[in-house]
Simulated assay, not measured.
Amino acid sequence: MDLADDLSTRPYDVYRELRTTSPVHRVAGTDGRPAWLVTRYDDVRAALADPRLSLDKAHAREGNYRGLALPPALDANLLNMDPPDHTRLRRLVGRAFTPRRVEQLRTPIRATADRLLDALGTHGTTDLVTAYAAPLPITVICELLGIPESRRRDFRSWSNVLVAPDPSRPQVAKEAFAGMLGFLAELLVHKRSSPADDLLSDLIAVRDADDDRLTEDELMSLAFLILFAGYENTVQLIGNAVLALLENPDQMALLRQDPARIADAVEEFARFEGPALLAIRRFPTQDLEIGGTVIPAGDTVLLSLSAANRDPNRFPDPDRVDLGRDATGHLALGHGIHYCLGAPLARAETEIALTALLDRFENLEFAGADPQWRPSMRARGLTALPVHYSRATPAP
């Protein structure tokens, strides 16, 4: 099966077919190399928490799909690590994303959302990804890390390339990696000479005070992962949620009538159309049985978060958006020790983004013929979200 093409064009049709025939399938990754794809909720959830499935590429056998190849300076990140290194690094950055810390960020996030909506005026047509869903999270994560506004446009262009690299144009991805590396290296030099009250300055202080706690490559890789994942996951979650509302006007009306539903609504949007089709690839450290299939040690295992979240055995009538549904237990942001570190922040940004948008515009309609999705086997995000919008009363 050509997984990359199928998932780019009709992921949920494909997953429905796969779940029906077997829990586990042999597939080909973007480079044509083989992997095992797991599609049913119970199997995916159990595998996400199974310590025998390693994220460390040292456990991968030659000849299997290995995912995106990163330069060594960016490779020492949490998505390639197991305990104890994973535990050590996660502890260092975890305090920046605690629910308490995120609550303190809600006011500035709402201010950023209002500023972006102010720029749209009272009515018109716009690409909501470019004008709103993308600049909101990039502003939040860059301010958290202490990245100057003048460099944020560069990062966004590199990120757009890396989240869906074109196999026919490998030089473009190489240039994006080179740009990102140079940017982060310059930023670390600047932060060392002029530290500030931001997460990156804090991590540099840890690195320079105690080399045993954080290597230079780990510092660079952490900065890259926090920046990249903090932006990409959230812009996709916001854009996908807005599209779900536009395509389900009855659910939009329900949320307008009862704004207190917003937290539960975000969980349903994440279940229905989460920011990732697949979890990061894993490698069994021993022969392992999943869904009745024995997977040899070192083979590549792909866990489909989106297939699990549309499994009717866990979520009845799963292809329908239902804000009255109990969507707790969805796997859109992972499960187990690799659960998304920035999940509290992504949830808060999405809640605020949707609330501000519905508060501001009384009329909001999709202005495109069909949604245009990024050509990616892993990420699930829109390339654009054209909308017509208007409001009946001035913004507060």
Rank of each mutant, 00 (worst) to 15 (best):
D118Q: 13
T107Q: 15
T87F: 13
P72A: 11
P84N: 09
R110I: 04
D114K: 01
R95A: 15
A113T: 02
D85P: 02
P72D: 11
L74C: 11
G124Q: 01
N77I: 06
T112I: 12
A76G: 09
A96L: 03
R88L: 07
R91L: 12
G121W: 09
T112R: 10
R95H: 14
P72M: 08
F97C: 00
D118T: 10
M81N: 04
I109F: 10
L92I: 06
A119T: 05
R90V: 08
L74D: 03
P83H: 09
T107D: 09
R100D: 07
L79N: 09
T98W: 12
T125D: 14
L74A: 12
P108W: 12
I109T: 03
R90T: 00
R88H: 03
D114H: 14
Q104Y: 11
R90S: 08
L117T: 00
A113I: 00
R110L: 07
A119H: 08
L105P: 00
R115W: 06
R100Q: 06
F97L: 00
T122C: 10
T126G: 01
P84W: 13
L120M: 14
A119P: 03
V93E: 01
G121R: 05
N80K: 08
L117D: 02
I109D: 03
G94E: 01
P83A: 08
A76M: 07
P99L: 09
L74N: 04
D75T: 08
D85C: 07
T98S: 14
L120A: 04
P84K: 04
I109E: 00
T112W: 08
D82N: 07
P72W: 06
L92T: 01
V102W: 05
D118M: 10
H123M: 10
G94D: 04
L120Q: 01
L78G: 01
T125C: 13
